[in-house]
């Protein structure tokens, strides 16, 4: 029982990270229709810069955090610039080219991380060390914080989407970018805000997870995959979709770790994919969520 509870909780907190990456996907896609594969790379770079600042240069965590967020926000803006440099209202973006460009950025980030931080996995500082005992299950404080922060971010974003002008204009762009432009919304700026926001969220995910799952230069791709799965599983409901998708994904993966040895590890890799396929056959619009548009 205690073991099950522990797996359950670990799964949820791991799933929270997937959810954050998935939410980043969702925000950018709804605002610009671009699938930003570089989403995982923000986590990679954010996590690495954070651990370097905090451990090598001994900055206080809050200062390191602030610097990382500024750095990553700039990365988000740069991504947007690169992806839609040639876009005009009357010449919409080519989605194939956009997705390929972001894929190239994933590999650029990977190469850069390899050059700077080398091939070995590294570990970032935790918010709070130690463990807590809940009903016999031993939980790491860091993963408790991971789950809490995920939920707080999701709630905050939901509020942003419903209550603020930025959120409203993002939803307008999701419905119809042309109409949005005719209402006086600067569609490019909304897109840039979405990229920035998603980059920041991605970096938070990377910083949170680095004490538990060590970071290596290839992890950007892995994060991206999990985010994509969370996004596809959950459905196109801006925040709730990837949140639920990510949590389910984390749970399912970790439940399979209960199997001993290599089988568990193998199932952990294969089952999410199988889940995705089953989903796409059974409910192509995702767990929650309306019809899959376009």
């Amino acid at each position: 029982m205690a073991e099950f509870l522990q797996v359950l909780f670990t799964g949820l907190s791991q799933g929270g990270i997937y959810a954050l990456i998935g939410i980043g996907f969702s925000l950018v896609n709804m605002s610009t229709r671009v699938l930003n594969l570089a989403q995982g790379s923000y986590a990679l770079l954010g996590g690495f810069v954070f651990l370097t600042l905090a451990t090598r240069y001994g900055l206080p965590l809050w200062a390191a955090l602030a610097l990382v967020l500024v750095f990553v926000a700039m990365l988000g803006v740069v991504t947007e610039r690169i992806v839609s440099l040639r876009v005009r209202p009357w010449r919409p973006i080519s989605h194939d080219m956009a997705i390929l460009t972001t894929l190239a950025l994933v590999v650029v980030a990977e190469g850069a991380a390899f050059l700077i931080w080398g091939p070995d996995p590294q570990r970032g500082p935790a918010l709070q060390r130690g463990v807590v005992n809940v009903l016999g299950a031993i939980l790491i404080w860091q993963s408790v914080w991971m789950l809490v922060i995920t939920l707080v971010i999701a709630a905050g974003l939901q509020w942003l989407l419903i209550r603020t002008w930025l959120g409203r204009s993002m939803r307008a762009c999701a419905q119809n970018p042309l109409t949005a432009a005719l209402l006086g919304i600067d569609v490019r700026r909304v897109g840039m805000a979405a990229f920035t926001l998603s980059a920041v969220i991605g970096a938070l995910a990377g910083m949170l997870v680095s004490p538990i799952t060590w970071l290596d230069y290839q992890i950007g791709g892995e994060f991206m995959l999990k985010g994509v799965l969370a996004y596809l599983l959950g459905g196109e409901l801006a925040i709730a979709g990837p949140l639920v998708g990510g949590l389910v994904l984390g749970l399912v993966e970790n439940l399979f770790l209960l199997f001993p040895g290599a089988t568990g590890g193998l199932l952990k890799q294969v089952v999410p994919m199988a889940l995705l396929i089953v989903m796409l056959v059974w409910r192509p619009q995702g767990l929650l969520g309306g019809p899959r548009a376009r």
């Binding site: 307008a172 042309l178 005719l182």
Partner: peptide, 10 residues
């Protein structure tokens, strides 16, 4: 705009 172009889900 022509066809009214509602932001349908809003």
């Amino acid at each position: 705009p022509e066809g009214r172009q509602m932001l349908a889900a809003l």
